[in-house]
Design a protein around this nucleic acid. Sequence first.
DNA 1: TTGGAATGTCAACAAGGCTGACATATTATG
DNA 2: CATAATATGTCAGCCTTGTTGACATTCCAA
Lengths: 193, 193
Amino acid sequence: MADNTEDAPPQLDDENAPLQPGDEDAPRQPGDEDAPPQPGDERLKKGIEAMFFAYRGFTADPDRILAKHGFGRAHHRAIHFINRSPRTTVNNLLSILGVTKQSLNRVLRTLIDKGLVESEVGTQDRRERHLSLTEAGLALEAELSTAQEARVRAAYAKAGPGAVAGFEQVLEAMMDRTQLRHYTRFEEDTGGT
Amino acid sequence: MADNTEDAPPQLDDENAPLQPGDEDAPRQPGDEDAPPQPGDERLKKGIEAMFFAYRGFTADPDRILAKHGFGRAHHRAIHFINRSPRTTVNNLLSILGVTKQSLNRVLRTLIDKGLVESEVGTQDRRERHLSLTEAGLALEAELSTAQEARVRAAYAKAGPGAVAGFEQVLEAMMDRTQLRHYTRFEEDTGGT
DNA sequence: TTGGAATGTCAACAAGGCTGACATATTATG
DNA sequence: CATAATATGTCAGCCTTGTTGACATTCCAA
């Protein structure tokens, strides 16, 4: 266990660079004067902690529902994105989720076995499998998204519309190129195909 | 693997409720008119996806560094919060991180063994252990936070100060009570004790 | 003295990542 | 047509990080 000589580190994306590197000396925000020794660092650390704590809250409600049904977060992600792009392919899902096909396959297998997802052979390219939610899958998706959206809705309501816009801007600016592409693609893609 | 009869679901916090439940019918934002059938749901789904994709970006840089050193995300979290509250106790860390003592202990043990963290017996209550980063620990912490803060800084710079305020507000509103308490505590606590 | 709190530790297990290797269709291409 | 590449599935094994349960130690407090 001591020799974690990972000579082949899990690659982790080749294009994992933030959108604008080299912004180290960012424009100082007003109000930096009354900050502790390291200027602005405190603000950043708070932001980092906010992400950490908020993400826990963000996943807490679905996690409870998933546990009831014997699923995990990985199943939730698959269900969510299949619901968003019905009849999507395995490959597309792979690139959205950023996991290996083995990991995804394990999740899909249980979802198909339990009758939440169905996979049909592609018509144009018969190598492809098109994934969709069944009735039962849609039901669980609804249960999950109802819970998760309720929390987001409450947070949005509490923070107000302006804050929501800022929230989205910052998150978007925090994504990798690849992820940003997936994120924005839904705007054109959803229901269009 | 079929019988996931978890009769004792992992409790997951008793106070895991969002800050304001029952806000289902939140005030409609202007611009909802030209929205698809389900009103506002699209906005919420985008927010959910933003959290998902952004969190991936958020952890990507530290993950790469950690892999180099043979650590994981759990080690990062421990290092981060020990750095934020030097000489903190195991119990405090446990409640911040929200994992079991066994999980935390495994992480702490490797950090102590590798000389990144030191644990000293409490002076008042000698059952307690006070955790601090060693020189080496501080060095790794600096490496990690430099990378992570660079991304956050870039995102902040790109989105602008107003957006950052909104970002923080929404995240804060998304936390559980418990987490919010830890989040805000740092403002008074850091360096105070 | 005795109970409980704070901590450590061993063992076992599960989810969900990963790699590597291999199989099987199916399509694309020389 | 033969062969390569693509899309997918699957087996086996490993790692991290979460979980329970049980038990030991140390120490504070009633």
